[in-house]
């Protein structure tokens, strides 16, 4: 392979919406078909340090998005990514819009930053996937000091912080608002 100048001479393939039938290729078990071998699913981690997150993606009219596919990627409990990183994907329930996944609470990443889980949202009507982050309410002080969130308003930071769940099976609630007054902060990573 040549080691020539890095000139970025090709352009990235443009995105198109994942559409309403994203489940066929990415989450067949959600439409009653068998998952493919080793296909990422809603459980990325079990054991000490595992947490269950649930929530709803809302559109600009306040309606649940019932056809979203959500991916999550985070560090393991020791803060390791790369080969030790934890990846999975889940889908909104067709009836309620609730999504749910289980992974590790990520260990600390870089000093001076708050640990987070990277979240991508794909759905009909979303032309290029949206990227957000799930931070944990126990890390409030680190969140407020995190350089990545310096330009994010307090309400924006709140939109990125999961809420400790008080009932049900989940440990945390993380609702995502695509548009409007309570709009979630999205990132250009």
């Amino acid at each position: 392979m040549s080691d020539g100048p890095f000139d970025g001479r090709l352009k990235e393939t443009p995105s198109q919406t994942a559409g309403p039938y994203v489940h066929i290729g990415t989450a067949p078990q959600s439409i009653g078909r068998p998952a493919l071998p080793n296909q990422p699913g809603p459980v990325a981690f079990e054991g000490t340090g595992a947490v269950t997150v649930e929530g709803i993606v809302y559109d600009g009219a306040g309606e649940p998005v019932r056809d979203a596919m959500i991916e999550f990627w985070g560090a393991d409990p020791d803060g390791r990514v790369g080969r030790n990183g934890l990846f999975g994907r889940t889908t909104s329930d067709f009836r309620t819009g609730v999504y749910r996944f289980r992974t590790a609470r990520p260990g600390p990443l870089k000093a001076g930053t708050a640990p987070y889980i990277a979240i991508l949202i794909f759905a009909r009507g979303i032309n290029l996937h949206l990227a957000t982050r799930l931070y944990f309410p126990e890390n409030r002080a680190q969140i407020d000091a995190d350089p990545d969130l310096r330009r994010v308003s307090p309400s924006g930071r709140a939109s990125l912080t999961a809420v400790k769940a008080s009932d049900g099976e989940a440990d945390y609630r993380f609702d995502i608002h695509l548009q409007g007054e309570n709009e979630t902060v999205f990132f250009d990573v």
């Binding site: 919406t17 600009g60 990514v81 990183g85 009507g125 994010v152 695509l178 409007g180 709009e183 250009d188």
Partner: peptide
Amino acid sequence: YKSSVLRAPFRPLVSPEQAELD
């Protein structure tokens, strides 16, 4: 593409520094 109308964020994206997760 009508489905985009209620699913498009209005606010500007935030640009963090790229990190190991990226």
